Computed example of a mutant assay.
Amino acid sequence: MLLNALESGYGDRTIVLLHGLMGSAESWWRIAPLLAGQDYRVIALDLPGHGHSPRDAEGTVESAAAAVVETLQQLSPGQHITAIGHSYGGTVLAAAADRLPLERAVYADTTCAFTGGADRQALAAQYAEGRERRRDPAWLMASRPYYSARDAAVEAHAADRFDPVTAASISSGDDVAYLPAPGSILVRAVPSSYVTDDDARRFAAQGVDVRSVAGAAHTIWYSHFDEFVASLPEVFQV
Rank of each mutant, 00 (worst) to 15 (best):
G130R: 07
T111F: 01
G117I: 08
T110A: 02
G116E: 03
R120A: 09
M141K: 07
R133A: 15
D136V: 11
A96L: 03
G85Y: 02
S143L: 12
A65S: 13
C112Q: 08
G51I: 03
A96P: 00
H157N: 14
A95E: 04
H86M: 13
R133T: 14
A124L: 06
A105G: 08
E155T: 14
A95S: 06
T71M: 07
S87C: 11
A97L: 02
S63W: 03
A66Q: 13
A113S: 05
A149H: 10
G59E: 05
A66V: 14
I84S: 11
V68Q: 09
R150C: 14
R150S: 15
A83G: 08
R104H: 10
H157E: 15
S76N: 13
R150G: 15
G85R: 05
I81H: 06
L75K: 04
V106N: 07
A153D: 13
V92T: 11
E132C: 09
H80M: 14
S53T: 03
R99L: 11
T91V: 07
W139C: 09
R120G: 08
R104D: 12
Q74H: 13
R134P: 05
L100Y: 01
T91R: 01
G117E: 09
L123R: 06
A113D: 04
A156R: 02
R133F: 12
R144K: 12
G89L: 02
T91N: 05
G78E: 12
A122G: 08
A83F: 02
E129L: 11
R120H: 06
P54I: 08
V69H: 05
H52F: 10
D109W: 00
Y88F: 11
A83Y: 01
L102A: 05
G85T: 13
W139N: 10
A105T: 11
